[in-house]
Design a protein around this nucleic acid. Sequence first.
DNA 1: TCTGGGGTCCTAGGACCC
DNA 2: TCTGGGGTCCTAGGACCC
Length: 425
Amino acid sequence: MTKPVFALVDCNNFYASCEKLFRPDLTNTPVVVLSNNDGCVVARSREAKKLGIKMGVPVFQVRELMQKHSILAFSSNYALYADMSQRVMSTLEGMAPRVEVYSIDEAFLDVTGVQFSQSLTEFGLTVRQIIQKWIGITVCVGIAPSKTLAKLANHAAKTWHKTGGVVDLTSKDRQRKLLALLPVNEVWGIGSKLTKRLQQLGIDTALQLADTDPNYIRQHFSVVVERTVRELNGESCIALEEIAPTKKQIISSRAFGERITDKQQMQEAISEYISRACKKLRTEQQEAKHLTVFLRTSPFSDKDPPYSASKSVELDTPSSDTRVFLTQAMKLLDGLWIDGYRYAKAGVMLTDFYDPGVYQPGLFDEPAVTRESDPKLMQLIDQLNTKHTKAIWFASQGNKQEWSMKRELLSPAYTTNWQELPIAR
DNA sequence: TCTGGGGTCCTAGGACCC
DNA sequence: TCTGGGGTCCTAGGACCC
């Protein structure tokens, strides 16, 4: 059997690039994209990175810097990014036999055997050119015998311009050369906590980690880190997953645009999250048996006393009916709500999933006390809402939603809304 | 004043059982 | 003096990812 070869294709500055795509006037302008509520910087254009805007920084900390250099900010326009992502991914699917969409802006390709007909670097350059030409997004490509090494190859392609945006890391020599240059925290799966612990053992570079005995690592860390060590040595331990496994949990939560102090507003917010989560659950064609509701004050505030709490309930039978979960969620909220706090965030979580109709109730289970589910009604609601955004909703979701998130710098939905198509003048 | 959202996997430890 | 042992299941929490 031939050893597998992976290519990691990753879009450069994806959200910022999407924003620039429909604004040719911004070609050389520094641009940042903000998180929900316009709170943090979650993406930066090349120019913005150069000016020293760090990833994840709260906006208020860099406001001066942004003004000084006329950095343009956008609220997250998820509809736009998802649509552009889909275009990139379907193009990639035409270029490789097997593709794993790993996140909104990156995909692993199975390129095993490609080297017999053309050089892997050539293949990478072709991918890059086609995505650039067809969609207008720039990507970098890293190629290696394991996913972890492909990640590092991609990192190298992004970091060093003379690579032309493509790095073939299939040769052992090149692997060791690159690993020696990279600090251990650049390795996929090694976060800040593990970095600290590894450094205490004198492991600072990716190469030092690669050269540590996997059994020693398993004993002192975990099987996960052991796998990383093996992957760094070119042994593929993490397979390509073409088909996304079914979800095990669905979370819907948001920080509020303004603090909530009124219980009715909180009920609206929770109702909205329940409605979103259940819609997602039905899209997954699953039913859930377990519901958690949580809320909290801001963890960053000195003057607000901290409060964070959650409560769960187990349904008698799994359901995907919004009304069933709404009833339960309101009961849970009654047990969580305390007057006087300034709530900053809340959310709901669905877990314990079943395929519809397969749940076997216990012989002595009480008959369902919850309202009966009505899949047809839910289907109808989903259909109406697919045609027209928010055509129909539950009264408890409210219609003003004054607490909803801030998105004051939103760009048009250029590609997904007829009313907002770009206009050529 | 202002700090995202949505996931996964693993481990440790307690409860419980024989 | 010495106070079983091993298995399973569940949950909370920690760590990671983008």
